[in-house]
Design a protein around this nucleic acid. Sequence first.
DNA 1: TGAAATGTTGGGGCG
DNA 2: ACGCCCCAACATTTC
Length: 473
Amino acid sequence: MRGRPAIWWIRRDLRLFDNPALIAALQRGGPVVPVFVRDPALLRSRHHRRSVRRQAFLDGGLRALDADLRARGARLIVRDGAPDMVLPALVTEVGADIVIAEGDVSPYARRRDAAVRSVAPLELVGAPMVHHPASVLKPDGAPYSVFTPFSRAWHARVLPERHLLLATPVALPRVPGDLMSAAIPDAVSLPAFPAGEAEALRRLRRFAESPEAAIHRYGADRDRVDRDGTSTLSPYFRFGMVSPRAAVVAACEADPEAAGRTGPAVWLSELVWREFYLTTLFHRPRVLQEASNASWREIVWRDAPQDLRAWQDGRTGYPIVDAAMRQLIETGWMHNRARMIVASFLTKDLLIDWRLGESWFMEHLIDGDPAANNGGWQWTAGVGTDAAPYFRIFNPVLQAKKFDPDGAYVKRWLPVLARVPLRLVHEPWRLGPLEQQAAGCRIGRDYPAPIVDHRGIRERTLAAYRQARASKA
DNA sequence: TGAAATGTTGGGGCG
DNA sequence: ACGCCCCAACATTTC
């Protein structure tokens, strides 16, 4: 065997297919030591706030990766501690001459990598995306702040093609002897999201790679909270169990003509939004602390812990909001349309700081990613650089009627509504006393009365935003 | 990747 | 036959 060992430091690229960092490590010609460092600092950071399910999903992913590595003559080494302590020690232990990892974008990740680089020979390869954040810039070299021109520039760059995706290695040469590895705990099972690369690739194939696949109905179906019209790949993207480049290849192959905007092109656009938010965080780490649009930093949010609690628990009295919040708590995932509805409700109806919603999502989402989550919240709250206009306020009843027309979604997550007639299932407070009795859904007893009156709340919100804008101008 | 208020149009009922 | 009103349907404007 030629060459000294290379350490393949795995962070959020838990896969063997199309993994540039892994291939770079293999090309060194020596043994490859795959290592995952469990970094206690990550559990304390606000934007990586601990979620039991996300932790379980990660643990499951590590186990799956270890199994895939063992099938190729290697194994996953898990070590606990600060990376700038653990990695230099491991370098010495195995006599490695390089540590290779995929680049990352969050402020914490970049500080961590800088610290490691000062004590170990670290080489970063790529980023968890198709186009590296430093590569999609305006002609003057500044990062884009508006999505549409970003998307245009993103598409103008060379896109991956299937024959360029990096094959899964058939074998990984290992160092002689046995390296110590911490045990991976037996995780809570997540029936809706089995962890691992094999499952991720199954989902990508099922979603995108057949003539009848859901991707072809994505434009129409993705907003229907009562249907399985989305890819459900977000947790797998979060931990790199699927390659973003492979996803883009699948989308482009599903619609080679890029005809219309009904299916694959719409999904591809969602992938570009993901890259937009990762890129934004890379260039503007402050977005994690404050609104990226300065005029919206002055909004006086309500201090309303009881309302916040009701929102978190799914007790607002608006079925579409409560159903979505229950789905989040019970499964660690929420339909994207529902995310917009509950975010609009927290920020626009309750006038509660978007950062509290962002934080709650991070505590519960399996796919919780600082960049995408922050971007989504700033967008809905209307405080981002390229956000929804502040006066765009979702009406939870209209949204529900439009995107859950049969009431199947609210009834699934709120069984108390099971016998409420469809006519009023999205606004049960309008049921007459006898109807409430007959449906077993007495408002204020079996199901809460609305905690705010959506129709009456509009002016309060518009006033708060107007005032912020005026105080800044 | 809204919603509500306001404006316009046109068909039909009616005296 | 005609003007009038009502109102749904659609378009435009405003936040």
